[in-house]
């Protein structure tokens, strides 16, 4: 069984996001890390590898910022990695999916895992669009996968719905599943895993080598970025922790009458 995992490097969650006077994102200061959802996807693939001797390829499209995430995937136990190099972040889901599909097509994975969404720009579209490109079935919001065996023709998928309800479905392979956090407990790479990862294959390629003389046109363009309109803030309590807590308890008791 061949499994591919799509990994995206996203702007780190705690980053300060600043716009220039012209309304452009100040990218130079930003640091990137592996999208949290994708970490669970890699873990799920490695478990399938352990159970069914699957080959796990981690794939990422992006700048040099993604390499560290791919290395992490290898250190966790992925078999090999593919880096499709671009000069800029590709913000458009349809364009990203088109390029990723070409990189995966030749490998013919039985199962492709992606994250439910990317933490920074979060369109939650790439997995589904990729499946359409490859002609695969697809299910989003996966919180459980049962792979019956190495020659499985279908997988059982538990989807998480609103309110924490579940929908159980069967999806015929080949398929793309998008993985939700909490599906497993991602492992930390061990020292041995890190050492072993240095000998693993990390293939670099360009969109041009995949047949994209120029990148596919965006289906969704960002025309303007701005700071969200300020909302009314909470009444902020002042002073040291002792004073703040004393004041809070007074307010809750005397004014709000909830204590």
């Amino acid at each position: 069984m061949r499994i591919a995992v799509c990994m995206k490097a996203v702007v780190e969650p705690e980053a300060r996001i600043e716009l220039s006077a012209a309304g452009e994102l100040q990218r130079s200061e930003l640091r990137y890390e592996l999208n949290e959802y994708d970490l669970y996807a890699v873990e799920e693939a490695i478990r399938a590898n352990e159970a069914h001797d699957a080959e796990v390829t981690v794939v990422s499209l992006g700048t040099e910022d993604v390499v560290q995430s791919l290395r992490k995937g290898l250190a966790m136990g992925a078999t090999n990695a593919v880096h499709i190099k671009t000069d800029d972040d590709l913000a458009d889901s349809a364009a990203s999916a088109a390029v990723l599909a070409e990189a995966l097509r030749a490998r013919q994975p039985d199962l492709v895992l992606a994250g439910v969404e990317s933490d920074d720009l979060g369109g939650s579209q790439v997995g589904v669009l990729l499946a359409e490109r490859l002609g695969y079935n697809c299910a989003t919001m996966t919180i459980g996968v049962e792979i019956p065996g190495p020659d499985a023709k279908e997988v059982k998928v538990r989807r998480e719905l609103e309110g924490g309800n579940y929908l159980d479905i069967e999806v015929a392979l080949p398929a793309v599943l998008t993985i939700q956090t909490g599906i497993n407990e991602p492992r930390y790479p061990t020292l041995k895993g890190i050492m072993a990862s240095k000998r693993k294959e990390l293939v670099e390629m360009t969109p041009a080598e995949l047949g994209f003389g120029q990148l596919p046109a965006a289906r969704v363009e960002t025309v303007e970025l701005s700071y969200p309109p300020p909302r009314e803030l909470a009444r902020m309590l002042e002073g040291g922790p002792d004073e703040m807590v004393a004041e809070l308890l007074r307010l809750l008791r005397e004014e709000e009458k909830v204590l």
């Binding site: 969650p13 960002t222 025309v223 303007e224």
Partner: peptide, 10 residues
């Protein structure tokens, strides 16, 4: 986007 730090018009 960006954890609600920016508003994008698309």
């Amino acid at each position: 986007v960006y954890r609600r730090k920016l508003l994008a018009k698309q």
